Simulated assay, not measured.
Amino acid sequence: MPYKEVRGNSIRVKWWTGDYHLDADGRPTKRKKYASASGPEDGVPFQDEDEAYTYGLDRESDVRNRRNRRRPNAPLGVIDYIEQVVR
């Protein structure tokens, strides 16, 4: 379930990304990673709390149905990508 919060004159929504934080050995822990947004697009705020909540529900649906695009922590070069594909 997404979590919405009013922060001053804006509304922010948070949702679970489907990922977990990693420990020092690179194994997933029980701590979940969350993403947030203050509007449906950059520079466009949510109109009300219902719009923010619906946006969060849509993002969680994308995670469940594997339509979400995860951003890598670091850019991946072409050579590294080829090495991953060839393996």
Rank of each mutant, 00 (worst) to 15 (best):
G18I: 01
D58M: 11
R31V: 10
P2G: 02
N65R: 12
P40Q: 01
W15I: 01
E83A: 10
N68C: 07
I11K: 03
Y81N: 00
G26E: 05
P45R: 00
G56W: 02
Y3D: 07
I82D: 04
D42F: 13
P45D: 01
F46P: 04
T29G: 01
T29F: 03
R7I: 13
L22S: 09
R69V: 14
P45L: 00
E41D: 12
F46Y: 06
N9I: 09
P28E: 09
S10R: 15
S36W: 11
G39Q: 11
G77F: 00
V85R: 12
A24H: 15
P28Y: 13
R31A: 13
N68H: 14
V85Y: 09
R69Q: 07
I79G: 01
E83N: 12
R69N: 08
E51H: 10
Y20F: 15
W16K: 11
K14P: 05
Y3Q: 15
D62K: 12
R66F: 13
Q47D: 13
R66V: 07
G8Q: 04
E5C: 05
D80P: 10
R59F: 01
L76F: 11
V63P: 03
V44R: 14
R70W: 10
H21V: 11
E41G: 03
V86G: 00
Y20M: 13
R7K: 14
N9M: 08
D58E: 10
V44G: 00
D25N: 14
S61M: 03
Y3K: 15
Y20Q: 06
R70M: 04
N73R: 14
V6T: 10
T29C: 04
P40N: 00
T54D: 08
A35T: 01
G18Q: 04
T17Y: 02
Y3L: 09
N9H: 15
R71A: 08
D25Q: 11
A35Y: 05
S10D: 12
S61Q: 10
V78F: 15
